[in-house]
Design a protein around this nucleic acid. Structure first.
Lengths: 148, 148
DNA sequence: TTGTAATGCTATGGATAATAGCAACATGAT
DNA sequence: ATCATGTTGCTATTATCCATAGCATTACAA
């Protein structure tokens, strides 16, 4: 009984909302849906946006390296980069006869600017939903859950 | 510069790990993969487990009601419950000529006990990865992100 | 130079989830 | 009692994401 009272703001009709794993899943799902909606007007998917943010200011990252950092398989990088290239947002720049750097194209810079604004607003709105005393703890806690 | 120094424990090679949205996605993905591994020996998927936990001690919940709470479409409840029923973990009990309650079968009780142990260990291991000063803030912060 | 590993790619399959539609039934208002 | 409306459980289909396996080419190190 005391435990129920202490678990702040848990959904009365959902006994699972006290479980970190369950709340993590639900929060991530809600967040992704919302972010997807906000990125749609830019013609970007969430994975697309993460690539654009990652290659910011760099002209030496290969597809494989991007995938390694973002945890996207090389095979799945292919349609993703094809999409960005078809949209004129990125270009490929040969490093070797084997590797190629993914660099921002001219139109990509403008997209990146719009993206920065959307992301900044999104992250601000995200944090605003969290009670002030919890806010600063979220990112460190989450990073501890997936960083090796 | 100060911001970078202040953002504790951010992956040096991943500028996105300072973003709440990104860390949320990565943490949820890592968590789900780990949980899937731990549930596999029980022959359960994550969604299956959430249903078993939800109907605990209740004999009056319909498929539609379970789906409403767990945010699973009615159409997608069908194969899920068929799986649990084929495994002998649940039974259907007519409430109406239209509705039927999903109740735990005999074998389901044993599965639920095993499940409780796995979940308890899993949640404990999850929280153990988080620095003590952040721990208590995680669930409240996450719940704020998806609770209406 | 030769074995090993990495790159970029094709092809494919599994799992999840979203949509549309349907017959049967419940429910509340008239 | 009846009628409009909403709900239930289901079928069927589709989109999307993600994982695996395999392949030709190239880099790299012993």
């Amino acid at each position: 009984m005391i435990a129920i009272v202490n678990s702040e703001r848990c959904n009365l009709d959902n006994p699972l909302s006290a479980l970190p794993g369950y709340t993590l899943r639900r929060a991530a799902h809600a967040m992704m849906a919302e972010l997807g909606l906000r990125l749609a007007p830019l013609g970007l998917r969430v994975a697309d946006a993460s690539v654009l943010l990652l290659i910011e200011g760099r002209a030496d990252m290969t597809s494989a390296e991007i995938g390694r950092i973002l945890d996207i398989q090389r095979a799945n990088m292919v349609p993703l980069l094809a999409r960005l290239e078809a949209a004129g947002l990125i270009e490929r720049r040969a490093l070797n006869r084997k590797s190629q750097a993914i660099v921002l194209a001219a139109a990509g810079k403008a997209a990146q600017d719009r993206l920065h604004r959307v992301i900044a607003q999104f992250e601000a709105d995200l944090l605003a939903r969290i009670a002030p005393e919890h806010r600063a703890h979220l990112v460190p806690a989450l990073n501890a859950l997936w960083t090796p």
